[in-house]
């Protein structure tokens, strides 16, 4: 085997391995994500969930199933505020979104603690962040599951999220 050929094979192997990281599914015998207590700022799970295509696509499914879509539409909002812009009332980091999903907010966001598992809240947060193209480009999906004609996340322009990091303490906010 000639050396350029060998080199390209090694390169291919690397590319494939990189792909594995994107698609990694922490399904079995990885108790970390389930049993750990939620850390309000700097939770180590945040990047695991955010930069994983599988978790994000599970989040997309849950976004429909948990009726998030009824209020927030596909990011443009309706009964609830838009999620695809850069304005976040209660902080737009993964931890903030998980907190919001689980505990609700006083102006209408219902709490989902006890209705969703924490893992599902993380998956949802990952998808919510993808609506404004916050996660890594190679993790974003190039096609949405929904039937409307929203722009694929990979084509969205990324705007840094406002008030990031949020006010400490995770109080109920205004």
């Amino acid at each position: 085997m000639s050396s350029p050929c060998r080199a390209s094979l090694i390169l291919l192997a690397f590319i494939l391995l990189a792909g594995c990281d994107r698609e990694k599914r922490g399904m079995t015998h990885e108790p970390k994500p389930e049993t750990m207590a939620f850390v309000p700022s700097g939770d180590p799970r945040a990047s695991d969930y955010e930069n994983n295509a599988f978790q994000m696509s599970q989040g997309q499914r849950l976004f429909m199933w948990m009726n998030c879509v009824g209020c927030h539409a596909h990011g443009g909002g309706g009964m609830g505020p838009p999620l695809m812009d850069d304005k976040w009332r209660y902080g737009g980091r993964m931890e903030d979104i998980v907190y919001t999903i689980l505990n609700g907010r006083p102006n209408g966001m219902p709490p989902f603690k006890g209705r969703l598992t924490e893992q599902q809240a993380w998956q949802l947060a990952s998808y919510v962040r993808s609506l404004s193209a916050q996660p890594r480009q190679d993790v974003l999906y190039s096609r949405s599951d929904e039937m409307s004609i929203t722009e694929p996340a990979t084509l969205k322009e990324r705007n840094a999220i406002m008030n990031e990091p949020p006010a400490p303490g995770h109080g109920p906010g205004k």
Partner: peptide, 14 residues
Amino acid sequence: PQGAKPGNNMPTVG
């Protein structure tokens, strides 16, 4: 559920 049928949509409720 993930041990019996990895990848399915039933979460581990704990």
